[in-house]
Simulated assay, not measured.
Amino acid sequence: MEITRRAPVGRPRGFDADEALEQAMLVFWERGYEGASLTDLTSAMGITRKSMYAAFGNKEELFRKALERYTQGPAAYAARALEQPSARDVATAFLAGSVRTTTRPGCPAGCLGVQGSLAAGDSGRAAQETLIAWRDDGRIRLRDRFRRAVDEGDLPEGTDPELLARYLMTVSNGIAVQAAGGATRSELQQVADAALRTWPPV
């Protein structure tokens, strides 16, 4: 008689990986990559270091996963803005989303993607490069959307899509830094509105 061997049943993790990643994201958002110690992270996540490594990899890998969660969650306004019908609507939604996210109640002030690793030593170099690539990707997506707007006649002929994209990113990044310094949502929305007053007329 042949005996069928069953594969051992995997032991449950014993924690909510989704919630743990949410907490890690908040720690990185508040303290940056280098400022977030493993003790800070595991304490907020409610798990041991061993469990963290098993579920998420090392600190650098955890940071990448947290940034991905941030992109799909609090920073999802950027992708939604690109779907707006006009270039001006894109810019308006993009800056309004930046203001809301950087002053979000119950979350750290500022932007994880901007302040997460602006000044980094050797241990934070990979995280810094990850965030540079993240911000560049945002700029490129805006540039391509504005290029389409020029082709469609929604922006004047001769408009520089790259310059417009960099302009919006610079204003958005400045909003994040100001929010981290204590500026209110109302004050930052006024900045966004002022920036839009220079938008190219159709």
Rank of each mutant, 00 (worst) to 15 (best):
E157A: 06
R148G: 00
R64D: 08
Q128M: 05
G182Q: 14
L142F: 01
Q115P: 00
D160P: 01
C107N: 08
R11I: 13
E30G: 15
I140S: 12
R13C: 01
L131N: 06
P8E: 15
G14K: 15
F94S: 11
S98V: 10
D136N: 09
G73P: 09
A44I: 09
T42S: 12
L112P: 02
L41A: 03
A76V: 03
D122A: 13
D137L: 04
T4F: 15
P156Q: 12
E61F: 04
L41K: 02
A192P: 05
P156G: 12
G124E: 07
G121H: 07
T130V: 10
A126S: 14
T42H: 12
A192N: 05
K65V: 05
G57Q: 14
E157S: 01
Y33P: 05
P156E: 11
L168E: 04
L131Q: 06
E2D: 14
R5K: 13
P200S: 08
N58Q: 09
L131M: 01
R166N: 01
G46H: 15
M169W: 03
L142C: 04
S51D: 13
M45C: 06
S172M: 01
R88G: 07
R5E: 02
Q115I: 01
M52H: 08
V114R: 00
M169K: 02
F63S: 12
W199Y: 05
G181L: 13
A87H: 11
P85L: 04
R5Y: 05
K59P: 05
R31H: 08
V202D: 12
D136C: 06
S172L: 03
T48K: 15
Q84G: 05
E22Q: 15
G116P: 01
D151W: 11
P12E: 10
L196R: 07
C107T: 09
T92W: 10
Q190V: 00
A36Y: 11
R141Q: 14
L168A: 04
L62N: 10
G110F: 02
E61S: 10
T48I: 15
A176I: 07
T170R: 01
R147L: 11
P74N: 09
E152T: 13
G46I: 12
R147T: 12
F15W: 12
P12G: 02
A149W: 08
G14A: 12
M52A: 08
P85K: 06
T130I: 09
Q178M: 12
T48V: 15
W29Y: 06
A133P: 06
P8I: 14
L196H: 02
R143V: 09
E60N: 05
A20S: 11
F56G: 03
E60Y: 14
N58T: 09
A76S: 07
G182Y: 12
L67C: 01
T42Y: 11
E152W: 07
W134C: 06
V150S: 00
G121L: 03
A44Q: 13
V191P: 00
V90E: 06
E34P: 11
L82I: 12
R11H: 14
V27Q: 10
A54G: 14
D154K: 05
R135F: 02
F15K: 13
R197V: 02
P108Q: 13
A76I: 07
W29G: 00
G73F: 04
W199F: 04
G113K: 06
L62Q: 13
G14H: 11
E34R: 13
M25T: 10
